[in-house]
């Protein structure tokens, strides 16, 4: 593990922080970062990536929490198809998702045609080639894991704890905020960080959906490497992505470790 992950990561970080002087000696320098951020699109793309990530993670949570909540507490037969639908995207490769969404939401796609044939309305503006397209694709991809983690977190709250709160006089809102939510804080933290990592480093969806520019970082990095052939810039972009992901990843690891310790594992 160390050999496959830590070593190359450290090597890349080291590479971007050093330069070879004229006399052949290696010196410490931030040059590659300076030149990288002088690229006209390096910073805008980074902000764009972070913005898309935050928006996607927020929407994912807002969308999936009610679903997970429903799946946890519903006893109705309907929860079976709901669970299936929520998990379905997991079995669809990203590239298939992207093209399905293009067919569905794109110009002359199903939505536009259905709207037109039902209402005669022609004002459909496809979100596919806009940043919204990326968000839609990434949300679609993120739903299963988000629902799974949140449902698992909610399942760890025994019914008795909820019922005893009802019993001492808590209404639905109080049960949620005072009893349920404090107990699934870690699951929420895990889902937020996990989604952040997945979305921040996403490649296929941002490549196929959204506009030509600005680009998400995974795509931007690949473009630097394969399209333009700037290995140093690609590496710098990679290190920046790595550091941001590692920072968020630390939060994730801490959440998981805390949870284990709390359970006494």
């Amino acid at each position: 593990m160390a050999l496959l992950i830590v070593y190359p990561a450290a090597l890349s970080v080291f590479d971007t922080l050093t330069a070879t002087s004229a006399d052949g000696s290696t010196r410490f320098t931030l040059e590659s970062y300076v030149t990288f951020f002088q690229l006209p699109d390096a910073l805008p793309n980074l902000w764009f990536t972070l913005r898309i990530t935050v928006v996607t993670v927020t929407i994912l949570f807002a969308l999936c929490f009610p679903i997970a909540y429903y799946l946890r507490f519903s006893t109705s037969q309907l929860s079976v198809p709901v669970r299936f639908l929520a998990l379905f995207p997991m079995f669809v490769p990203g590239i298939v998702t992207a093209f399905a969404l293009i067919r569905f939401l794109g110009d002359n796609g199903w939505i536009e045609n259905i709207l037109f044939s039902l209402t005669g309305w022609e004002g459909w503006v496809s979100p596919i080639a806009k940043p919204q397209g990326i968000v839609i694709g990434l949300v679609w991809e993120g739903v299963p894991v988000t629902v799974l983690v949140l449902t698992a977190g909610l399942s760890q709250v025994p019914n008795h704890l909820i019922e005893s709160a009802r019993d001492v006089g808590a209404n639905g809102r109080q049960v949620f905020f005072r009893i349920i939510f404090p107990q699934i804080r870690r699951s929420v933290m895990i889902v937020l960080t996990l989604n952040f990592l997945g979305v921040f480093g996403a490649f296929t969806i941002p490549l196929l959906l959204g506009g030509a520019s600005p680009q998400m970082y995974g795509h931007y990095m690949a473009n630097r490497l394969y399209g333009i052939g700037q290995y140093t810039h690609a590496q710098t972009a990679a290190v920046i992505m790595f550091l941001i992901s590692a920072a968020v990843g630390t939060l994730y690891v801490r959440s998981v470790v805390n949870q284990r310790m709390e359970k006494g594992e």
């Binding site: 093209f99 293009i102 067919r103 794109g106 110009d107 002359n108 796609g109 496809s126 080639a129 806009k130 490549l207 196929l208 959906l209 959204g210 506009g211 030509a212």
Partner: peptide
């Protein structure tokens, strides 16, 4: 098309023709 929403990849641009966009 779409004020320069340059499609990504051959399949995406071909679709615009096949779906008569």
């Amino acid at each position: 098309y779409d004020d320069g929403a340059y499609p990504s990849g051959a399949a995406a641009v071909t679709r615009l023709l096949t779906d008569e966009v």
